[in-house]
Structures are given as structure tokens and as C-alpha cells.
Simulated scan of single mutants.
Amino acid sequence: MDKPFADISARLRWHRALLGLTQDEYAVKANLKRAQLNNWENGNHRIGLDGARALRKTYGLSLDFIYEGDINALPMNLRNALLDKPIAS
């Protein structure tokens, strides 16, 4: 069975891996709970607006990238990183 939010999940996992952070480190830095991040990364739960805004504020991820995968909404450094290391499904 496909995960309903696998696309969002893949983008979040890609970004965390790019930074070389554990789920706990990534979540704590954004003032989130690791369990929340785990739920989003497993693809069964959709990240809420408050969580997405926390990632935007902390890491510069745009809401358009998180929800829609719009790479043009990313800062140039992340856009270049995405071209160098594409998101794995």
C-alpha cells in the first residue's frame, strides 16, 4: 500500500539527510518533537502548517517545496544541493 504523503516524506528525509542530522537533532533544532517528524517522514501523516512553518523558519524550506515539491521556491543553495543529490523516493 502506498503511503498517502510519500512525496512530502521524501522531501523531508532528503533535507534532513543533506544536513546529516538525526531525526532528534533535526526536530529539536526546529522546536518540534521527534515523534512528529517521524510521523511525517514515514509518509502516513501530513505535516501541518505549524510544523511546516517551523521548518521554514529554521531551515529555509519553503511551504511550496514542502507541500508541492516546487524546487524554484527553495533558496539557491538548497536548489543546487537538490540538483547534486536528487530526492530518492
Rank of each mutant, 00 (worst) to 15 (best):
F5V: 04
L74K: 06
I66G: 00
A73Y: 00
E41G: 05
N42A: 08
M76Q: 14
Y59N: 00
D24V: 15
P86G: 02
A88G: 11
G69Q: 03
N77D: 14
R16M: 08
R13V: 15
E68R: 12
L18D: 11
G60Y: 01
N80K: 14
S9H: 02
L83S: 09
R16S: 07
D70M: 04
I66L: 09
E68I: 10
D7L: 13
M1F: 09
I8S: 01
Y59M: 02
A10I: 06
E41V: 05
L78T: 03
H45D: 10
D84Q: 13
I87Q: 00
G48T: 08
K57S: 09
D70I: 07
D50A: 10
R79M: 10
R46S: 11
L55T: 01
L21K: 14
R79P: 08
N80T: 14
M76K: 13
M76C: 06
N31C: 13
I47N: 03
L12R: 00
L55S: 01
F65I: 07
Y67R: 01
I66K: 00
N80L: 15
K85L: 13
L74G: 06
S89Y: 06
D64W: 05
A27C: 09
N72E: 13
S9P: 01
K29Q: 15
T58N: 00
T22D: 04
N39R: 11
N72H: 10
G69M: 03
R79G: 07
R46T: 05
L19W: 04
E68V: 09
A73N: 01
A54R: 06
